[in-house]
Amino acid sequence: MRAVRVVGPDATAAVAHIASVLDGSVATVEHLDPGTPRTPPPAADTAYGLAADGSWVGVGENQSLTTLLEAVAGHDYALVAGAEARLPAVVLGDATASDILVRAESADDLDLDHVAAEIATLDPRETLESLVAVVKADPAADRAGAIATFTGRVRTRDSPDDAPTERLEFEKYEGVADERMATIERELAERDGVFAVRTHHRTGIVEAGEDIVYVVVLAGHRREAFHAVEDGIDRLKDEVPLFKKEVTVDDEFWVHERD
């Protein structure tokens, strides 16, 4: 799923225009003002309405954008209007953003083909669930009795008195890192009894408690699945040109300088 935010005076209109030219399923997230009335049942955090024809509405409280984006990760695109987020931005009018994908005066001035092309260049956001869905759809899945997964996440602290890590930042050697990961996936999938392997490593800023890397293996039986997932993460950490910077409350450093 590729996620983009749209910021500026007529962001909502721009989202509608862009959604109309994207080829694939699209989820949109509209920024709600805190005062906007909404009424989930008092005891519910999240309320959906589902009609017999499959149409539905959802309403709720205490939701973060990150969690919401994970919930829609099965879509091909997410367009987020107005909200603050670490996402590449389509910027309209006088609005500002730190990661600008496309700029335009207004929603009507957008070159939609250009926007769609720029969105296509973004790295997709994967979740554990989206990678599991991919391997389940593999042609060999009917012979697979096992799926084993590994999730690497940002550890806030190593020990009780360790200075807490606020975030990690990952830089990658574009192209080469992706090739190496594809090679690892392919070589593991060549093993007897292993049918499909998918990996994903986030780049840029990853906050404390968030996931960094996934390795997902589809196999005939559990023994091969466990071995492949272990070897997958070990090889990724050993061979893929990715570089980690750690930011704690006290300090900021490239991890290879401290090892």
């Binding site: 050993d238 990715l242 570089f243 290879h256």
Partner: peptide, 10 residues
């Protein structure tokens, strides 16, 4: 040419 430090992914 590319020059890079020890890899630290994962």
């Amino acid at each position: 040419l590319a020059v890079f430090p020890p890899v630290t992914g994962g």
